[in-house]
Write a protein that binds this DNA or RNA. Structure first.
Lengths: 196, 196
DNA sequence: CCCAAAAGTGAGTAATCAATTGCTTATTAT
DNA sequence: ATAATAAGCAATTGATTACTCACTTTTGGG
């Protein structure tokens, strides 16, 4: 028993990620996935019951690896403001490397077609906002950020700022570097976090 | 000759807007549009050559009416900061009333499927950013905003902030009021515009 | 009132795709 | 080795949907 070709699942997820980056979700057909992996179209359904299940797995992959990227980019010894800076930087670096992320995140198709996928996305966003709010609270207590900061509100707006940035990046066909933008966004945030 | 039923075009655009708000672009079939207007499906193609043409007209409608809403909400006599506040407020009020807007703006389908529609969207965004940058420049000169403000950069980030906000609003199924958020977003922007 | 153009329709067509079926081949567990 | 299970495939199915066609009805200008 067991799973000798658990490998194939990973290959399918990876192929779907690659294709999504280039084509957008709608054009990623099970045939296209099969072609890229090098198997026949029906074989895809040996590994995933439905096409939606494939995208659920893709969102799972993004959630897992985005979390990893963020965690590994941050040193818990640092002050909260430095941690936040690095969090934003590693988040943008990750997205920069994986263009499928905005395609998945901004797909009205996914949002509306499948309640399951939608709630996965909402959880991903909630988790991110909660993490940022934690850091803001920590920095507020340590004095790195100003005393009257509304941590939840601010966390939501930092998330919005980044999502808007990533949206523009994807609408303009990835024609600027997100990593450079990390620095600018950080500068933009300074007066919000530190001012009175 | 002439256009006795120019009316029908408007009805089709309106039906498409309504349906898009509820269903998202993918599910807005020409059949669904016909049903809502109360005509047969082939009749739709008497007024628009292709489905894409319908959505091009919808983007045209949004562009036109968003501009109108923004212009009519702003008094050119006011100081630049007051004008900017009102611009953001009336923009969010408009989007609040027309849920199709985020569905159209955030549709990977539109972005990737039709270069024509994509460039219409880019123009819409460019026009908005340019307008904000103008106001920022004006306010910088009049002293309403601080001297070192990078107007282009800041305009892009204001746009990103709003787009991110609207994205969250649509992902969470419109379950909060955008107009209330206008006040909060304005408060959030204060230190950015006036500090230093 | 008339007739040409526009608006309308029912009945297709053609293309696209997710998913199924029935069968063969490879893998692994004992 | 071998039986059971998983992985593979060619062929097909069934559903969806933009768009066409051949024809009828409505409308408005002279």
């Amino acid at each position: 028993m067991g799973k000798p070709q658990e490998q194939r699942k990973k290959e399918i997820i990876q192929a779907t990620l690659d294709l999504t980056a280039d084509l957008g979700i709608k054009r990623v057909t099970t045939q296209a996935i099969a072609d890229r992996v090098g198997i026949a179209q029906p074989t895809v359904f040996r590994h995933f019951k439905t096409r939606d299940d494939i995208f659920a797995a893709v969102i799972g992959w993004i959630t897992e690896n985005l979390s990893k990227a963020i965690l590994s980019g941050v040193n818990p010894e640092d002050e909260a403001d430095e941690q936040l800076r690095k969090l934003i930087q590693s988040q943008l670096a990750f997205i920069n490397k994986h263009r499928a992320v905005p395609r998945v995140l901004f797909s009205d198709f996914l949002h509306l077609e499948s309640p399951k996928l939608k709630s996965l996305l909402q959880e991903l966003m909630n988790g991110y906002i909660k993490r940022v709010a934690q850091l803001l609270q920590q920095g507020k207590e340590s004095g790195a950020f100003h005393k009257n900061l509304d941590v939840d509100q601010t966390a939501r707006y930092i998330a919005a700022l980044i999502q808007g940035l990533v949206l523009r990046w994807s609408v303009y066909e990835f024609n600027f570097s997100l990593e450079k933008e990390a620095k600018i966004i950080w500068k933009f945030l300074q007066p919000v976090l530190k001012a009175h």
